[in-house]
Write a protein that binds this DNA or RNA. Structure first.
Lengths: 134, 134
DNA sequence: GTGTTTGCAAAGTGTTTGCAATTTA
DNA sequence: TAAATTGCAAACACTTTGCAAACAC
């Protein structure tokens, strides 16, 4: 196993996830560069291209496990689909409606001052999605 | 036709939509009170209860026409579904994950200072969705 | 009348589930 | 070996579409 894959395996173990072949592969694809925005379908294709196909069900299971473990952030867009974002720090997005492309907005550029409190429960995530039409 | 329905009919005409029986009914259900958050399914049910059933296809078509005409705002949530919000002024939402309920956040409580510009195109909408877990 | 709108049923999209076979610790 | 994970195929929720009949102007 290469050094890169060992780092992913450790990351998974640290998050309480068994470092299976599929999880290590998907993790190494996701985290091979910074700030990736990937759909389940794209990741499925990348795995196939890499010569290690993973079933769609496992792609979805794995992505959700990564989200639950805080290793990934899910951005729900229209049309019933989601992007999975490797940047888990607070930051928001432009969604270009014509291309479907998602672009980061640096965190220092967006703030929510005077945040009201919900009537009950704890804030779990704040999603800011700015739709842009060409 | 009652005064209320005539107002809806005018609103539709003004937006360039023919005031058909179905559009007037759905409009009058939507706008019968302020700041409603309704799903397509709910509106379909309300029409049935009102004794004037409208097909699901027409509910969807109509909601999208209202959104395109700026009479309604669409809030995409997870699970592939949407709320349709009669409040078209800038304001954001709490989404209570356990109940699925959507709650308004008054506009004066949320601001996005130093808004960056998209690399191309015009901003079409800004959605702020704060997920709350009980 | 003519173009628009409706309703039905079928198809579509992205996602989730049940469960037997496989893999991991 | 015991528990967790995978992959397949079927099911799913929500939404959209094609097209003939009905409607609005």
């Amino acid at each position: 196993m290469t050094k890169q894959l060992l780092i992913v395996a450790d990351k998974l173990k640290y998050a309480g996830l068994r470092p299976t072949r599929q999880r290590i592969l998907l993790g190494s694809l996701l985290w091979r560069e910074e700030d990736r925005h990937v759909t389940a379908e794209q990741l499925h294709t990348e795995a196939k291209i890499a010569g290690m196909p993973v079933s769609m069900a496992t792609v979805y299971n794995t992505l959700h496990q990564f989200v639950d473990a805080g290793l990934l952030h899910q951005v729900v867009i229209g049309g019933g689909s989601s992007y999975f974002d490797t940047n888990t720090k607070p930051h928001y997005h432009f969604l270009y409606e014509t291309s479907g492309e998602l672009e980061d907005i640096p965190a220092e550029n967006v703030q929510l001052p005077d945040m009201p409190m919900p009537k009950s429960g704890a804030i779990q995530s704040i999603d800011v999605l700015i739709k842009v039409r060409a």
